[in-house]
């Protein structure tokens, strides 16, 4: 298929940036969206132009790097997928596709479609871990009994890949789905109880410091999340924060 692409181009963090139109031809519907971007970049390199910078790594939906806002949605129109898992068969011959970086004050653009998501790392550093001494006295994993229900829910929360689609989709650029998932994966398990109060307090404080917006429960994050992280994790984080403060 033949497509028109409207892509955000920005030389560096200080550049104002603008949308630029490109044409790509003979795109196979079996290609992934990133492969289509590769075709475009090859074309640009051949004509001596600067290729479009975009983040990617695993190309199989597990690293969370491939941040793109495609036709007004994070990771494009498909559900439960990252951009690398998005197939060109979701589009039609002759389509015009708008491609922008994830937008949030806390995710500044570095170049073209690449944004700086280290705010997420700093939130994780604030409490997204457990401190266990494993030197020489490691416990048998099965010694601590965990109900199937709690284990499943903790595992679901832990599937968050930190892609930032929740922030990008939220009208308030709120990071509460991400932080809710990271708080929940420990809040549900006995291993997470020791540091539970400090964890939620510190992670929420860091989230607020980074300049993310406030959740107004529109639910956009849950719909656009490639891993189907549920809003229930935000409710749980709210409960955890209340518990930590009373």
């Amino acid at each position: 298929m033949n497509l028109t692409l409207k892509i955000w181009r920005q030389i560096d963090a200080n550049d104002k940036g603008k949308m630029v139109d490109y044409k790509v031809t003979e795109i196979s519907e079996h290609m992934s969206f990133l492969e289509m971007m590769d075709v475009l970049n090859e074309q640009l390199v051949n004509t001596g132009e600067e290729p479009v910078a975009f983040d990617h790594d695993c190309r199989e939906g597990i690293c969370g790097m491939c941040s793109m806002y495609i036709n007004g949605e994070a990771h494009g129109p498909d559900r439960g997928v990252t951009t690398c898992q998005l197939h060109m068969r979701m589009f039609k011959d002759g389509d015009t596709i708008t491609i922008e970086p994830f937008r949030a004050k806390a995710f500044p653009v570095i170049k073209d479609l690449v944004v700086d998501r280290s705010a997420f790392d700093r939130i994780q550093h604030a409490g997204g871990y457990i401190s266990v001494n494993t030197s020489g006295n490691t416990q048998d994993a099965n010694a601590t009994l965990i109900s199937k229900h709690a284990a499943d829910e903790a595992m679901d929360a832990a599937t968050c890949i930190g892609c930032g689609a929740c922030v990008a989709s939220c009208k308030n650029a709120s990071a509460m789905l991400f932080v809710g998932a990271k708080v929940s994966q420990y809040a549900l398990l006995p291993q997470g109880q020791v540091e539970a109060a400090d964890r939620v307090k510190n992670m929420v404080a860091q989230m607020d410091l980074e300049g993310f917006g406030n959740c107004t429960n529109t639910g956009a994050c849950e719909i656009e999340c490639p891993k189907g992280i549920s809003l229930e994790n935000i409710a749980r984080m709210n409960r955890e924060l209340l518990k930590a403060n009373v």
Binding site: M19, N71, G72, T98, E100, R103, K105, N172, G211, G213
Partner: peptide, 9 residues
Amino acid sequence: NARVAKYAK
């Protein structure tokens, strides 16, 4: 204010 630059689409 949490999103300074808006989306084109």
